[in-house]
């Protein structure tokens, strides 16, 4: 038996969470599978849960101060279908799971689950997203990049809930997304690459390249991004192989059931090459 809390408001949810330590249940598409028992029998959850997916006050998309703010319990389908959603995020969500799962799954769930293969997380990190956390003590905003610290591990405090995802709108930005899975839908990523950049007068003024499922967390190589920023596009084209190699050396993937380390390293580097080609109009 497990205690399940069904709060009517966020405030009530925060109370439950802080007083019982109940685990946030935002769609449950991971939890229900991980703790399944057998056909015809309910899952065996090891801790109390607080249901959040029904809270309307956490389901919205709106613009605020140049950023898109997404209520944490908005379903993946609603995020994907919204006109304000950046194309990169739309693409990433579009290749996640299957429609039925996207109708249940939420951004908060994907973030809180903290899988290195979380596709929405990979796209959000490339978009420089941050998240708002709330607790009875107050609210704080942290960069998503810093929020996830390892597979399944975040800095979410015992009394906190994710309430909002804040995605800066990069005017004129260009994005690129590629996911490699065993099949074309409903497959966890072998690896994924999300990129977002801006060019002004043939100069790269902004670049983020996030690699999913190649490290314990979604990976960005800030040093390489810093080096690339300010470079002229033809220069980047010239350094293509070198940049690809730097990425290849920076990632240390693992062998698992879905793929091998060697494959991930090579394919990730190739996909970085593809990003660079897209950027510079090369090849």
């Amino acid at each position: 038996m497990v205690d399940v809390y069904h709060p009517k408001t966020l405030e009530e949810a925060l109370q439950f969470r802080s007083s019982t330590g109940a685990v946030p249940f935002s769609g449950g598409t991971d939890i229900m599978v991980r703790y399944r028992t057998s056909h015809g029998v309910l899952p065996d959850l090891p801790w109390p849960i607080v249901l959040l997916g029904h809270l309307k006050e956490l389901q919205y998309l709106r613009l605020r101060k140049g950023s898109l703010c997404i209520g944490a319990e908005t379903t993946l389908t609603d995020v994907m279908d919204h006109e304000l959603t950046p194309p990169l995020l739309k693409q990433a969500i579009g290749l996640m799971a299957a429609p039925a799962l996207r109708n249940l799954g939420t951004l908060a769930g994907n973030i809180g689950n903290a899988s290195p293969a979380g596709d929405a997380v990979c796209a959000l990190i490339a978009l420089d997203a941050s998240i708002e956390l709330a607790s009875p003590r107050g609210r704080r905003v942290v960069s998503l990049d810093l929020f996830i610290v390892g597979p399944g591990r975040t800095i979410l405090a015992e009394d906190e809930l994710i309430t909002e995802i804040i995605v800066p709108i990069g005017e004129g930005h260009i994005s690129w997304y590629k996911k490699v899975g065993t099949r074309r839908a409903n497959a966890l990523s072998k690896l994924s690459v999300s990129a977002d950049w801006a060019v002004d007068d043939n100069v790269l003024t902004h670049v983020r390249i996030a690699l999913g499922a190649v490290a314990p967390v979604v990976l960005r190589c800030r040093d390489i991004e810093d080096d690339m920023t300010g470079m002229k596009l033809p220069e980047i084209a010239l350094q293509r192989e070198d940049l690809m190699n730097r990425y290849k050396c920076s990632i240390t993937p693992i062998d698992d059931q879905r793929s091998s380390a060697a494959y991930r390293k090579q394919a990730a580097s190739n996909l970085v090459g593809a990003v660079l080609d897209e950027m510079t109009g090369g090849r």
Partner: peptide, 23 residues
């Protein structure tokens, strides 16, 4: 079917992947 030491490691259709309509 992945067999490690005679034990199957991909026991369900989440890890034993068969084609879906999109494939």
């Amino acid at each position: 079917v992945q067999e490690a030491g005679g034990k199957i490691t991909n026991l369900n259709l989440g890890t034993y992947r068969i084609p879906r309509s999109t494939d």
